[in-house]
Simulated assay, not measured.
Amino acid sequence: MSVTRLAIFLSVVLSVTAGIHYYLWARLVRDVAWPAPWHTWLSVAVIALAVLMPLGLMLTRLLPHRVTSPIMWVLFSWMGLMFFLFVLLIPADLMRGVASLIDHIGGAPPDPARRLLIARLFAGAVGLGGLGMATWGFYSAMRPVAVKPVQIAITDLPANFHGFRIVQLSDIHVGPTIGRAFIDQLVARTNALQPDLIAITGDLVDGSVAKLGHFVTPLAKLRARHGVFFVTGNHEYFSGADAWIAHLRSLGVTVLRNERVTLEQDGHHIDLAGIDDPTGRSFAAGHGSDLPRALAGRDPKRPLILLAHQPRGADAAADHGVDLQLSGHTHGGQIFPFNLLVGLQQPYVAGLHRLRDMSIYVSTGTGYWGPPMRLGVPAEITDITLHPA
């Protein structure tokens, strides 16, 4: 990423962060007119959180994981609560605006006491609502990840591949708040499913190999008849993709970088291809998705499964005769109503979809990113079974 693009990105992030924190302070502290010293302490807390949020993200790159992890638990939890408060304040402000307009049209004189009462009622409702949503979201993210069975039909699937099972793991995001214990449990539960193939569709980590490499070593214990395969996500490129690719290969994971392998079962064959995340072009020479290269020389009579981190390349995949694309990236939105915004950037947000002759499955993610919360969008270990169309 160029210095100019990085500067623009940071400017936007800092401006948005500052703006949201000011809005929360104005509605939940200033307008409520908290008595001293609560007003002062709450104001200081909001300012401190606004400063620490971007600072904390930078510190994760500089300080040891054991130092930054407790800080990031606090900041990411606040990030989730902040989102819920912001989302609830918007309709609350609309209702207050409508009430003020009605009073103005009716010629009612200004009543500061009534205005303060309304501000406190709305602030209380928003505060309780936000805390409730954050608490439920935290519980949803912390409980064991559910195994989600999915049946997918493949045209001309060879008879020996009927019932072929793929476990898809995606968007685990090992990092500040997800560590080795999560990976240990994930490996045990995945192996218990006894899949034919394991596919990890990107965004495994949020940090360097030096800091997080030992957290993912249990992946070496993953077992599947046809092996474990991985494709890069955008977060690998934020974390040193080449080093992670080498590290995963040392654990026995096959990393598909715009390439294809043939899976054989009792004399019958299907193809499995994987492409880099398109983000790679901006971070490292020789990286970035190249679907034609991955599919060069393939036998079009063989069913083809494609691992691609982002769903947005589905049109190109369908054009190239892919039968099934497995993707992640979206987290299904992770936190309602953020899933409504994800749909503006990605053609598919979650679940199984059909695009012409191709099926595409988008995982909601096995971990989470940022706030340790999921609301309305549970995490999943996807247990895919193939059968003939």
Rank of each mutant, 00 (worst) to 15 (best):
Val126Gly: 06
Asp299Asn: 15
Ile105Tyr: 06
Leu169Trp: 09
Phe9Lys: 09
Thr382Arg: 08
Arg120Thr: 03
His353Lys: 09
Ala379Gly: 15
Ser100Glu: 12
Leu341Tyr: 01
Leu57Gly: 14
Thr135Tyr: 12
Gly274Trp: 09
Phe86Ala: 14
Asp111Leu: 04
Pro378Gln: 05
Ala284Gly: 02
Asn234Val: 12
Leu85Arg: 07
Leu341Ile: 07
Ala146Ile: 10
His329Asn: 07
Arg257Ile: 00
Val322Ala: 08
Leu10His: 05
Ile71Asp: 00
Trp244Leu: 03
Ile305Leu: 15
Leu295Ser: 05
Phe283Ile: 05
His65Ser: 09
Leu24Gln: 03
Arg356Tyr: 03
Gln310Cys: 10
Ala210Asn: 04
Gly313Glu: 10
Arg257Met: 12
Gly343Glu: 03
Val44Met: 09
Gly127Thr: 15
Thr4His: 11
Ala284Trp: 09
His104Leu: 15
Gly127Pro: 01
Ala108Lys: 15
Pro372Leu: 14
Asn258Pro: 00
Val147Met: 04
Ala7Lys: 11
Leu251Gly: 09
Thr262Lys: 09
Arg374Thr: 00
Phe164Leu: 11
Gly332Ser: 08
Phe336Cys: 01
Pro176Asp: 15
Pro54Met: 08
Gly333Pro: 00
Val377Leu: 01
Ser208Thr: 11
Pro378Tyr: 06
Gln194Ala: 14
Ala379Asn: 08
Ile71Arg: 05
Ala243Ile: 00
Leu94Asn: 03
Thr330Pro: 06
His309Met: 08
Met373Ala: 12
Ser77Tyr: 13
His309Thr: 11
Pro109Phe: 09
Val13Leu: 15
Gln345Gly: 02
Pro158Asn: 02
Trp78His: 05
Val29Ser: 00
Gly365Cys: 08
Val98Ile: 15
Ala125Glu: 01
Ala99Glu: 11
Thr68Pro: 00
Phe84Asn: 06
Ser282Ile: 09
Met79Thr: 03
Ala113Met: 05
Val167Met: 08
His65Met: 08
Trp38His: 08
Asp383Glu: 11
Thr40Arg: 15
Leu101Ser: 07
Pro64Gly: 02
His235Trp: 12
Tyr368Asp: 04
Thr232Met: 11
Asn160Pro: 01
Tyr348Val: 04
Asp171Trp: 12
Pro347His: 07
Ala379Ile: 03
Leu49His: 03
Gly19Thr: 12
Pro110Thr: 07
Leu63Pro: 00
Gly130Gln: 07
Asp276Pro: 05
Gln168Gly: 13
Val12Ser: 07
Gly107Leu: 12
Ala26Thr: 09
Gln151His: 15
Ile152Phe: 10
Trp38Phe: 14
Gly97Phe: 10
Thr177Leu: 11
Leu28Asp: 01
Leu57Phe: 15
Lys211Arg: 12
Lys301Thr: 12
Asp103Gly: 09
Gly233Ile: 12
Leu75Phe: 06
His65Trp: 14
Leu295Met: 13
Ser289Phe: 00
Ala246Cys: 00
Arg27Thr: 01
Leu352Asp: 06
Gly365Asp: 02
Glu259Asn: 05
Ala123Ile: 12
His287Thr: 14
His21Asp: 08
Pro337Ala: 11
Leu128Lys: 10
Gly370Trp: 13
Tyr361Ala: 10
Ile20Glu: 06
Phe238Arg: 10
Pro278Ala: 09
Phe229His: 07
Ala210Phe: 00
Arg249His: 06
Phe182Ser: 01
Trp136Asn: 01
Phe215Lys: 08
Gly130Asp: 05
Pro35Cys: 10
Val51Ile: 15
